[in-house]
Structures are given as C-alpha cells and as structure tokens.
Design a protein around this nucleic acid. Structure first.
Length: 346
DNA sequence: AATACGGGGTT
DNA sequence: AACCCAGTATT
C-alpha cells in the first residue's frame, strides 16, 4: 500500500510531459505502445510524432501502403512491429469500423499486441485493472522485493505478473501502471541509480542489502552469429541502380536492399570478383568492381553480427528492374543501407 | 523453453 | 570487442 502510494506521489511530481500522456484515445495509446516496445522514449518520440502527423486516425493508417509505413518506421528496428501495426489498423477499420476493442482479453487478440501492450491499453484507455510488466517494472519489483527469479524465465514472467497484479491500484490502474514504469525509467535506472534520493529506499530490499547492481537477474542470451554480407551497388551510365525486396522469413522482411551476396567467410577483392562474375544481373556484361569500404563494417543485431562490404559495380546499362537513383529515397531500407545511401550520395 | 527479431548505447 | 537494454511471435 505504501509502495503504490509512494509511487503515485512520485509520479505526480516527476512524470515527463509526453504527447501520449495528453490523451486516452486508444489509437494514440496503441501507436505509442507499439513504438515504445523495446525502445526508449528518446528514440521513439520522433517516430511517434511523425506517425501522428502522417496518420492522424486509424483510417489514415489503414489506407496507407505497407511500404510507406515501413518507410516511416525506417531506422526504428523490429520491423514486424510496423507490419503488424499496419495489418491491425486495417483489421480495426474493416472488422470494427475503426473502433478499438475495449478490454484486455479482446486487445490481446490483435497482431503485435501481447500481454504488456494489452494491459497498457486496457488500463490507460479503459481503466481496467490489468498490471503492465515491462522491463522497468521487472527492475523495480525485483529490487524492491529482492526477487532473484530470472525475469526472462517462464517462472519469472508469471511471478512478476502476479506480483504486479497484486500491487496494482484497482481504483486508478492507469496512473499506477504509468507511475511504476516511469519510476523505473527515471529513478530506478539500470545502471547507477541514485538511491540516496529514492522515496522507496527505506523498504527496498536490494538497496538495504547492497544488491542493486545484482538485480534484476537475467538469463544470458546466446552469442550472436557472424555473417558475411556483400551488397552490390550497381551504377549504370544513365544513373540507375538495383534494389530488391527482402521476402520470406528472417531479418528486414519487406524492406529493400542492394542485391545481396552472402558468403561463408570474408573474401578479398579477387576472390569476390571471381564469384560475382557469374551473378545473374551481370550475365557476362563488362563491369568495373570497386570496394567502397576498405574496412569491413560490422552491423550488430541481437542475434547476428553482419560483416558487411559495399561493392560498387559500374556497368554500361541495366535492364528493366533497375530504378533511377533519384527514386532511391522512396524505398524503406534497413539502417545500414540507409547510412550507405546517405554517405555515397550517388 | 528457447530463439528470432533492430538498433542504440556504455564500458 | 563485450556488454546492456527489452515485448511479441514462432518454433
């Protein structure tokens, strides 16, 4: 009780002014929560503003092409969020005439909406007392109550959800949920929290046992796999190049890239030239091959380290699939491609 | 229960 | 280079 009361008092004084805190409209809350999955406010805020500006209603979002939505999402990562966001907007419009479901159970059925997001929307928009458990909540609860259960074990997920559900203020779930998350983000930070000024330090088990740095406990993830990516940046005399859409499973689904040659190890210039000669897009045409980045770029994803080279392939002409280089900015691309395009400047 | 899925940050 | 951050879907 003292825990919830202190949290809410702290929140009333310390909460940041954020655009999604000015509304209870489920469209805006849903949009903000999807953007903020796995993402800090600092990184997500400009994307939220761009989406609100471009798609003021769920109908506007539903009318857009997926590619346009992905373009706006470009750089934010975890692109399935954008694909699911778009698919769900279409579903909300066609199945519910643009009206969002108004309870946790129904919200959970939406693509891209899991336990956390359903709880956030249900509590913030509809005052349903369902506890949110995001990374901030795991940290606050594990420290305050001194809980060692790994937060990413199935036991931990159940245990922390049950505890949060026990603690939630049933009269004011919206404020309680937002208070505990904001407290984790601002006061009970992952590294070096300033516990001297923490209003909860008296009852905090981790603080009193000097275990702040040890909690929360997390099971280590597997080491990232190393991959070797070679992008072929075609440039024709008439200023055309080639982009391909990534289909199927795997990273960057439905985003565009320069034709990719993946190798099982790093190849030097001559090895790669021999290999690329037989590429279908070259078909025995004469070409000039230049390595753009002398050092391999390492692009780090959660589960893959992409050792990447950009190869400039100068050719006389390209066939019908080529695009004019002025059009290149219209395509959604992964950030490593986007950075290259910006630097290369065609 | 384990893994895939981005990109940004710190040490 | 090694580490931390952290929701959902799939297998």
């Amino acid at each position: 009780m003292i825990f919830s009361k202190t949290l809410k008092h702290w929140y009333s004084i310390n909460k940041r002014m954020l655009p999604w805190r000015q509304t209870q409209d489920p469209y805006f809350i849903w949009l903000s929560e999807i953007i903020l999955q796995q993402t800090q406010v600092k990184q997500g805020l400009p994307y939220y503003q761009a989406f609100v500006a471009q798609y003021p209603t769920v109908f506007d979002l539903a009318k857009a092409d997926e590619s346009e939505v992905l373009k706006l999402w470009q750089g934010l990562g975890y692109y399935s969020r954008a694909r699911n966001l778009h698919a769900t907007s279409k579903y909300i419009v066609s199945a519910f005439n643009g009206e969002f479901p108004n309870n946790y159970k129904a919200l959970l059925k939406l693509k891209g909406v899991g336990d956390y997001t359903a709880s956030a929307i249900a509590s913030i928009c509809f005052n349903e007392a369902t506890a949110v458990v995001d990374g901030n909540v795991y940290r606050v609860l594990s420290r305050y109550f001194g809980i060692d259960t790994p937060i990413n074990s199935s036991k931990g997920v159940k245990e922390f959800k049950a505890l949060a559900q026990e603690l939630i203020d049933k009269e004011d779930p919206a404020n309680f949920n937002q208070a505990i998350m904001e407290f984790g983000a601002v006061q009970c930070t992952p590294k070096n929290p300033d516990c001297r000024i923490c209003p909860l330090n008296k009852g905090c088990i981790a603080f009193n046992k000097n275990r702040i740095a040890e909690l929360p406990v997390k099971i280590k993830s597997a080491k990232a796999k190393k991959k070797h990516f070679n992008f072929l940046v075609f440039v024709s005399k008439d200023q055309k190049t080639v982009l391909e859409k990534r289909e199927g499973k795997g990273i960057w689904q439905n985003l565009y890239q320069f034709p990719l040659v993946e190798t099982d190890k790093n190849l030097d210039y001559n090895q790669f030239k021999t290999l690329v000669k037989n590429h279908t897009l070259l078909e025995g045409m004469p070409f000039e091959l230049l390595l753009y980045n002398k050092d391999v770029m390492v692009h780090k994803l959660s589960h893959q380290h992409l050792h990447t080279k950009f190869w400039i392939v100068n050719v006389e002409r390209l066939n019908g699939n080529a695009i004019s280089v002025d059009k290149i900015h219209d395509f959604p691309v992964p950030i490593i491609i986007g950075n290259f395009i910006e630097a290369f400047n065609f």
